[in-house]
Design a protein around this nucleic acid. Sequence first.
DNA 1: AAGCGGAGCGCC
DNA 2: AAAAGGCGCTCCGCTT
Length: 607
Amino acid sequence: MNKRVLFVDWETFFDSKGGYGLKEISVTEYVRDSRFKPHGIGYQYLDQDKAHWVSGEHQLAAFIGSVDWANTTVVAHNVKFDGAILAWRYGVKPYLWVDTQALGKAALGEQVSSYSLRSLATYLGLPPKGELTCDGVLEPSAQQLAELGEYCKRDVELCKGIYEKLMPQFPQNQIWHMDWTIRAFVEPRLSLTENVLVAGVQKEKERREAAIKASGLDKRVLASNQQFARHLQSLGIEVRTKISGRTGKAIPAFAKTDEGLAVLQRSNPCLYAARIASKANLLETRGESLLRVARTGLFPFDVGFSGAVQTHRYSGGRGAGGNPQNFTRNSFLRDAVSAPEGHSLVVGDFAAIELRILAWLANEPQLIHKIINNEDVYSSFASLFYKRTVTKADLVERQFGKCAILGLGYGMGGDKFQATVKNQLKLDISDGDAYKTIRLYRTTYFNVPKLWQFAANVIPLIASDRIASLHFAPFIKVRKNALVLPSGLTIRYPNLRRVGDEWVYDVYRKKYESEPTKLYGGKLIENICQALAGELCKEAIGRLESEFKVPCVGQVHDEILAVMPTAAAFVAVEAMAEAMQQPPKWWPQIRLKSEVGYGPTWSTAKK
DNA sequence: AAGCGGAGCGCC
DNA sequence: AAAAGGCGCTCCGCTT
């Protein structure tokens, strides 16, 4: 049977003053709220010239009932919102979900500054979007409802226009993956355990308040850079400054990794602790927002297709209590995420996936050989550095080796490496040691710097009009200002040009203004490694669901989450390991490895 | 009062 | 420059 394509857009009651709106609360809380009330829906099929408007409870029910959802692809702009309403309020399960906002990110990338309906419509030369607000209007008058209908129909037509313009530029094989990111949200399978969140937040609050109280200072003084600096000066403590990378002005060096704060930590630990405690942290704010979601039902997993527009990795969304990609490791946040009754979470992790990709791209035998023989690359590098045999038992030394192996593959310099070691390992190393580590890495794995050089040599080719493939990655094609990945998705370097002896391209960092950004060999390789890792993970999810019938419920870069009945969890572990280890058709040589575990919660499932 | 930019920090 | 990068979230402080 032919699938029909249906464009939709809901108009619903919101009240920003009453705290009931999408700026105020997450999509999940909004749609599940008792105040939720649809004004109506705009819709249009792909083969229709004009959009339609349906309002009124009975008419809406009749419309929903009239659609053959199982054979309909539903398209909307930010479809997680419209899909959540259809799925959670009307029990709709369509053939496929498509999001024109994600389509914009995937197909246009950095070429636009915003992926709002208005911005994409303007960029693509579609008719202007209407202007209308009905903030706080619970019962629109007949005239208001008619105006809302006209406004909504225009949005539906714009959504269809965006789809028609961008779909030809979007690789068909990626449609299923886009659908998966939306299903992970609108068909949630995970739970959030309320009391775990309550206890975690409470503990964190008490810890912070105690630290602030112990200092005897006002929280506002501690939290403000200016006031805190003045307070330190009044105590006769020197306030070190640093130069802002963005503004070029001197600012107080108050970051955790700044030396000035480290000095304070040693000289006045109480004041240091209070300063840190004065800032809200992720643990507490995220715990609170997840708790609000937990009270409404299951946990929708929000990742955005091509959210990382440069590499097409998934980004974390804010639709259900905040970005699930940065839940603090070994924290109560991950303890709170669990499989439903009678089920287990199966979690798989690609082992050192970017390192493997780098090793095979560089064709570096010192890495490839060790990886194939299951030798511990981190210990091996640490052994070279410390000039003695380091094993997994030498925790700090091996951690140092890991930090170097994972960090130095893209050209990192000494200062940055020193800061990274301090930040991740809480380890102080000298300038000399940092420099020595970098030199050791680059001489030991000399094919890696050679790869950066190959990449640097390719940059002029990317900027030219010539069509080619990368000789070190033949499955990646070179196009004008772009690289085409095996999936067909494109890494873009808009307006790539030489400025002096550097290469730059334009990135929208600010909202309305693009900014030249440098491109060099190491960075190009990093973009490629991240992008390929993302593609491998997507392919594994595809195999797991279609071949192994293991329903995947979430993804964090190199990690896949699935939910299975506990009786079948062990079988799913095997399936996941196999699905993740299978090399892709376009790169049969690479050797992948995964670590898979299962348990009742995210924390327990992950080894 | 609301919006924006800068800075810092969580994850991979 | 043989220069790690990709994100989202939060707060402060300034502008509008």
